[in-house]
Computed example of a mutant assay.
Amino acid sequence: MTSSARIHPSAVVEAGARLGEGVVIGPFCHIGGEVELGDRAHLVSHVVLTGRTRIGADAEIHPFAALGAAAQDLKSRGEAGTLVIGRGCLVREGVTINAGTPAGGGQTRVGDDCAFLAYSHVGHDCRIGDGVTLSNTVLLGGHVRIGDHAAIGGATVVHQRVRIGAQAFVAGLSGLEGDLVPFGLAGGNRAHLFGLNLVGLRRRGFSDARLALLREAFRRLFPQGAGAETLAARIETVARDFSGAEDVEALIAFLRAERERPLCAPRPARG
């Protein structure tokens, strides 16, 4: 514990906790003895940090968030896992993020500059990239993987072991059961792929030329109506024809990777 930390008299900080420079711990917080808080982290009030939890600098954590508790997995026997959260993350009211389990590598990991809005939940063994946003009451099952700068709309539920690619967007009130490709836009119950996340990509500074390449790749990978060519064949054709196009190559790599869930695909065309 450092001398520069400001700790409210009602807070409990167990022996062994490591607090960075300029940490602020508000009223009625409880910090476990294996917790590490980075410089300038701010716990507003009524925050519980437990287990082997490490939180990066400049975190802002709001009331009734509970981070680092054991996995809500009935197969788990309470084995000690870890939770690692990067720099600059915003955690709003009532958020829960669980530690990892031995079956998932023992660690739940969150990148830098993420935002978890009120009452969202991150299950055990999830891997979340940088700049990810979970809106209010988003629920992630265990072992979910989310790429950088993806966003999920409010009240959406994501099935365990689903992958969500970088820069993708899931609309609110969705149930996502399958892997969502990078740059994709999906929604619905159960969610299906609409196309490209054009609004998000433009906000991220994608040029018209980059978007044109992605549009053409999407059109060829996910054509309207049934075709004779399989998805596997379309993947190889697009990989060949767009060789050197970084965004398309990222899309192809995602599609080629081993997956545990089905692919979130466009809704079949009506005859």
Rank of each mutant, 00 (worst) to 15 (best):
R190W: 14
A191L: 06
L193G: 12
L193R: 00
L193V: 09
G195E: 11
L196I: 10
L196S: 09
N197K: 07
L198F: 10
V199M: 11
V199G: 05
G200C: 14
L201V: 13
R202N: 08
R203L: 07
R203W: 09
R204E: 14
G205L: 06
F206K: 02
F206Q: 04
S207Y: 02
S207E: 01
S207W: 03
D208H: 01
A209I: 08
A209D: 11
A209G: 00
A212H: 00
L214V: 06
L214I: 05
R215V: 11
R215M: 08
A217R: 00
F218I: 04
F218P: 05
F218V: 03
F218A: 04
R220A: 03
L221T: 08
L221K: 00
F222G: 02
F222L: 02
P223M: 00
Q224E: 12
A226C: 04
G227L: 01
G227P: 00
A228I: 01
E229N: 01
L231R: 05
L231H: 06
L231Q: 07
A232F: 09
R234F: 07
I235T: 07
I235C: 04
T237Q: 12
V238S: 04
A239K: 05
A239L: 07
D241L: 02
F242E: 05
F242D: 09
S243P: 02
S243V: 12
G244K: 02
G244E: 08
G244P: 06
E246W: 06
E246R: 07
E249D: 12
I252V: 15
A253Q: 15
F254S: 15
A257M: 05
A257N: 10
E258M: 04
E258H: 10
E258Q: 15
R259L: 06
R259N: 14
